[in-house]
Design a protein around this nucleic acid. Sequence first.
DNA 1: TTTATTAGTTTACAGTTGTAGTCAGTCAAA
DNA 2: TTTGACTGACTACAACTGTAAACTAATAAA
Lengths: 147, 147
Amino acid sequence: MIDAKDVTISDSEWEVMRAIWTLNKVTSRQLIDTMNQARGWSDSTTKTLLHRLIKKHAVTQHGDQRPYEYQAAVGEQDSMAAAATDLFDHMCAMRAGSTIADVIQSRELSQDDIANLQKILAEKAKTAPKTVQCNCLPAGMGADCNC
Amino acid sequence: MIDAKDVTISDSEWEVMRAIWTLNKVTSRQLIDTMNQARGWSDSTTKTLLHRLIKKHAVTQHGDQRPYEYQAAVGEQDSMAAAATDLFDHMCAMRAGSTIADVIQSRELSQDDIANLQKILAEKAKTAPKTVQCNCLPAGMGADCNC
DNA sequence: TTTATTAGTTTACAGTTGTAGTCAGTCAAA
DNA sequence: TTTGACTGACTACAACTGTAAACTAATAAA
């Protein structure tokens, strides 16, 4: 299993990955038909994306003869965490909290999800600082942050 | 103020936006120097990015004579929310909760942030469903989701 | 075994991004 | 008024993306 942090998946590729993760093990035909129905893509488009994913080591090819099977080489949860972390990493640290709030408000979450988040937050509250500093510019520059 | 949802900001452009948001109102010279110190970019790189941001309507140019001033035309919090929402929009809905958990765990949050999130979650719990369905493939396809 | 079909590989091509050089217009100094 | 410095505009160029056609190799049907 390749580390999700070492793989950059583009938007379209991401759609292919979702299908692969969901179907778990696919032939190209299955995947092509799936993407055709799900997104209206031509055969070629799916083929290209699949090959790019293989080249990026996000997907592996299995089998010794022709209708090969394809499988994800990176985990879905890991990839999601990597993508999300990466996004937050280049946004203002001071506003991460409110942004997470925005995300939570825009998502559907299950009772279990909520309970889990509450537990994590309760734990985090024990050592949380009073405030978080803006990290948009290196220390010293931009004296008074307007963030 | 332009709607953040209508503007797509690339990674490098994002760095420039952060500087502009923080400094609030800048001349190109200020911005160029800032990016040079903060990221080691050449003058040209910052200039190009600034112009692309103007073309995208993420930044506006002010003043009638030469050292113009530049200012963000999209809000920082709005842009962050738009970027984050956009990311979650193309990831499996079923795993959004765990991904948010991953993000929370990787961030530094203030006491206030945490309290706010707790309030939102408590509210959300009132109407939260028992489970959230995977939405990786259109209904009907991929019968048994492995997500 | 020849042919048709399918699966896999290469090539294509315009738009975006990261990164930066060069040219031109304008204000300030001489 | 000419010149220099600086700001802003335009050009450059390779890598990556989204989208797909064309070609080739392998298998299944005739």
